[in-house]
Design a protein around this nucleic acid. Structure first.
Length: 876
RNA sequence: GGGAUGUUAGCUCAGCUGGUUCAGAGCACCUGCCUUACAAGCAGGGGGUCACUGGUUCGAAUCCAGUACGUCCCA
């Protein structure tokens, strides 16, 4: 038999993935005899390629799904992608540009044709990459947020909410990208530190008694003075008290505007006098609302000045700034220019400086919908892991603002609002319905579809994805279909904390709004994958490894394990390739354990010498399994993996296999091999969710299996009663083995040299069943039981008993004495601290019974140990 | 500025409602081994005043207050 000493993942991973697919193990259909377990994937952007964050996130989902499947639940993991309005549109625009086509030169329909073309070509890449990772999604259920049914759901929801009065049109200050020609969300805006210039401008005071006086105003945007509607000062500012209620004249323009008073104005900043430009600054807008000021918008969509500016019309905002500064200076209105550090907002996509701009947008009211969504999380109907996110969630939901759902883009669901010639509008799911409503509304039966103009904007991508857990099961199209009734509410959602509000909270709202039920029960929030120095992984830094390269190099199992070795829930993961290497090494360890077992010849006639070892590992597995299940219940996936890791490496390989291993080239007995194969199978089962490929491979190599007898659908182990007696005894035995090995190492005794061991038992002999184990693991020739301490031997104490290793005279008495004395002193110190506690009246009366008994036991153990060490010292 | 949260070994983190020899794990490190399952390995070992200060308590890594530093969210 020749199996490679190195496990080779490349050869096996594709094979098993194909087998699983062929046999339909990932597929799920409603089965009333089984408990459903459902996960919907956080749909990755169609523009995306697999990055480390996806790897982590999807590994965790796959672990949960695979475990549930083995537990006999009807496991359903729904995959899909998100149309990602702005990101995709930007990609398509860039692609067109390369072909020499400008977006503005083509029609909406043409553009969408290109966009779909792009989506068909690249949109599936990321899902294919997930297959390499081993993701056991039900691929037959793959959905896309912009496919027909899901789009219909979005429109239906919009119309429904509009009719309920939950959607309205309104003016809002948005982040306007003059180059891209669209509003951006706050997330698509990048703040950049810069040095800004502060221009101090003289505004002439108006009125008989103020002739010749000036008020100096500081601004970083002198080109917006034409949009000024007031100058504001702080009411407590002594410098300006005499100006309250007066007026000033805008330089160059000559227009007269009032001086208003508001505590919002900072006395220290600039000159303490603030020009108010409601159309071009969010704070000014709010100030304007408060003081009933008019709004003058002097900018066009593309960042040039319009007619309302009166001056510099047609010039770009930055050109206008240069020119007006020159003119102001020449006219004597410019007092001085200061520099100060500031933050300028730029567009993530185009790099253009963002223009705060008022525009008409569609909004979705949040106040009512937020209530049940907040309640469900606060009372733990929906649990967040880790729970620290509850606070954040609450503060956001408490201060929730209406949701701006319109985007000035083409790629997405077009807003189903239709404007009538008179400027009013109707909302309807179809053109025909819109026309019908419009005819009724206008009482004009001759109104034609061509008289209606549909809103040009599309809906925010989140307005599709908030419906995801419902729409993937066609819960809008057919609210009582078998799938939605069976799979909804889903069980667990695995996602990133960054989108807790944008996505998770809104899914919860949608769940209650449209199905009267939460969309999922648990939300597991993963951290951000960072590099070893803690920096966020990014393309520009080039610090992100290519996940597919990693899989190629270390195997999907190795990468999965590596990702999880250091990823507690909600904490950022400092990714280090060394972790993946550790994962690969772990694969190899399991592989070699399998090779060992597979290589043994069985002799049916041999008696079984390993009953104790078998009994122990059985108990130990159960103990570890109980711990594992506990970790899973608390979503401590990283700890769960570590528990399995230690079970496999330490307990199964280092201890159990060494205990039962026959001498070189000797056969093994039937009872032992049978038990051992069973143990390995159990180990493979609990390991499978983490490392699906290698475990499936060994599962099949180990035995000939029936057609559908695959590990992926094997029964998850069951908890048994804890057998503490055997695990505790073995722990003591392994301590003895460790002590002997320690002596061997510290005395430079070769591994191959056999030692003798004498045991002086204080109470009853509990070692009989373990003698062969000690002999084997510590390479002991003979074990004898003695009444008296041994001369010329190194000794140690375990569980109150004394152990002696004869040293054939070459024993360093002084060193031995020192070691024993040290240990004696430590134990005496320990005894004193225990005795102190026990002699403390208040401790004995105050502490619980169990604690006191324990202290008594500690006292007795310490006393026994001291006695033993003292005897050893005496015989030395 | 408001709020949340954290600070435990060289690194990443466990340590539940105070009480086992409680100061832990993995990795890294050091020493010795190519012992026929595995050097992607085996055996052993050394590392920490639990951020700081004070308080509550018979007893504090754990509870409370303050300080310092860090991170996140909101403005």
């Amino acid at each position: 038999m020749s199996i490679s000493t190195k496990y080779n993942p490349k050869e096996v991973e594709q094979k098993w993935y194909d087998s699983w697919m062929q046999r339909g193990f990932f597929r799920s259909t409603p089965n009333p005899n089984k408990e459903p377990y459902t996960v919907v994937i956080p749909p990755p952007n169609v523009t995306g390629v697999l990055h480390m964050g996806h790897m982590l996130n999807n590994t965790i989902q796959d672990i949960l799904i695979r475990r549930a499947r083995m537990q006999g639940k009807e496991a359903c993991w729904v995959p899909g992608t998100d149309h990602a309005s702005i990101a995709t549109e930007a990609k398509v625009v860039a692609m067109l540009k390369e072909r020499g086509i400008e977006k503005k030169d083509i029609s909406r329909e043409e553009f969408l044709k290109y966009a779909w073309e792009w989506k068909e070509k690249y949109g599936g890449i990321i899902l294919d990459q997930l297959k390499k990772l081993g993701a056991s999604c039900d691929w037959d259920r793959t959905r896309f947020t912009m496919e027909e049914d899901l789009s219909a759901a979005v429109i239906e929801v919009f119309v429904d909410l509009y009719r309920k009065g939950q959607i309205y049109r309104g003016v809002r200050m948005v982040n306007w990208d003059p180059l891209g020609g669209t509003a951006l969300s706050d997330e698509e805006v990048i703040p950049k530190d810069t040095m800004a210039k502060m221009y101090h401008l003289k505004y002439e005071l108006v009125g008989d008694d103020a002739e010749g006086g000036f008020l100096t105003v500081a601004t970083s945007r002198p080109e917006t003075i034409m949009a000024d509607v007031a100058v504001a000062v702080n009411p407590n500012d002594e410098r300006y008290k005499h100006l309250h209620g007066k007026q000033v004249r805008i330089p160059l323009l000559g227009k007269v505007i009032p001086i208003i008073v508001d505590e919002y104005v900072s006395i220290e900043f600039g000159t303490g006098a603030l020009k108010v430009t409601p159309a071009h600054d969010l704070n000014d807008y709010e100030l304007g609302q408060k003081h009933n000021l008019p709004i003058i918008d002097i900018l066009n969509d593309n960042g040039t000045l319009n007619e309302l500016a009166q001056l510099y019309v047609g010039q770009d905002r930055f050109a206008a700034r240069r020119n007006i500064v020159k003119d102001l200076q020449e006219a004597g209105y410019l007092v001085k220019i200061d520099e100060y550090p500031s933050i300028v907002q730029t567009s993530e996509r185009t790099g253009a400086v963002i223009e705060p701009r008022l525009s008409m947008q569609w909004f979705c009211k949040m106040d009512k919908m937020a209530l049940p969504a907040l309640e469900a999380v606060m009372n733990d109907d929906i649990r967040l892991y880790p729970p620290k996110f509850k606070n954040m969630y609450r503060s956001w939901m408490d201060n929730i603002r209406d949701w701006c759902i319109s985007r000035q883009l083409w790629w997405g669901q077009r807003i189903p609002a239709y404007y009538l010639p008179d400027g009013s509008f109707v909302v309807a799911t179809t053109d025909a319905e819109a026309l019908e409503i419009a005819r009724k509304k206008t009482e004009n039966p001759d109104l034609q579809l061509t008289d209606l103009r549909q809103d040009e904007d599309v809906l925010d991508t989140w307005f599709s994805s908030w419906l995801w857990p419902i729409s993937v099961f066609d819960g809008f199209k057919d609210p009582d279909n078998k799938d939605i009734l069976y799979y909804y509410p889903t069980n667990d959602l695995v996602t990133a904390p960054e989108i807790l509000f944008f996505w998770v909270a809104r899914m919860i709202m949608a769940g209650f709004e449209f199905r009267n039920e939460m969309p999922f029960r648990n939300v597991y929030l993963t951290g951000i994958v960072r590099d070893a120095q803690g920096r966020k992984m990014s393309k520009s830094l080039g610090n992100s490894p290519d996940p597919l390269d990693l899989i190629e190099q270390y195997g999907a199992d190795g990468v999965r394990a590596g990702m999880l070795f250091s990823s507690p829930a909600g904490n950022d993961l400092l990714f280090d390739e060394k972790l993946v290497e550790q994962g690969r090494n772990f694969s190899n360890k399991i592989w070699n354990a399998f090779r060992l077992i597979k290589g043994w010849e069985v002799d049916e006639n041999l008696p079984c010498p390993n009953e104790t070892a078998i009994q122990w590992f059985d108990a130990r597995f159960n103990e570890a399994f109980i711990q594992l299940e506990d970790h899973f219940e608390k979503f401590r996936i990283s700890d769960a993996l570590l528990a399995v890791y230690k079970l496999v490496w330490d307990d199964f390989c280092s201890n159990y296999l060494e205990m039962i291993k026959p001498a070189y080239q000797q056969p093994i007995d039937a009872r032992t091999i049978e038990a051992t194969v069973g143990f390995l199978e159990n180990v493979l089962k609990v390991l499978h969710p983490f490392m699906p490929f290698i475990t499936e491979e060994i599962w099949h190599e180990l035995k000939t299996r029936k057609d559908k007898e695959f590990l992926i659908v094997a029964a998850w182990p069951k908890k048994d009663k804890l057998d503490k007696a055997i695990t505790e005894q073995m722990e003591a035995v392994l301590n003895i083995v460790g002590a002997i090995r320690n002596i061997r190492n510290s005395k430079n005794i070769p591994q191959t040299k056999q030692l003798d061991l004498s045991i002086k038992i204080v109470s009853d002999n509990k070692y009989d069943a373990f003698l062969s184990i000690i002999t084997k693991l510590a390479n002991v020739k003979e074990i004898s039981f003695v009444q008296d301490s041994l001369d010329g031997a190194i000794s140690f104490v375990e569980a109150g008993d004394e152990f002696f290793i004869p040293m054939e005279g070459n024993i360093d008495v002084a060193a031995e004495r020192e070691r024993l004395t040290k240990e004696l002193e430590y134990t005496k110190g320990f005894l004193i601290s225990v005795a102190k506690k026990l002699s403390n009246e208040r401790f004995v009366s105050g502490a619980p019974e169990a604690v006191i008994t324990n202290e008594r036991k500690k006292q007795a153990d310490a006393e026994a140990k001291i006695k033993a060490i003292e005897q050893s010292l005496a015989t030395l």
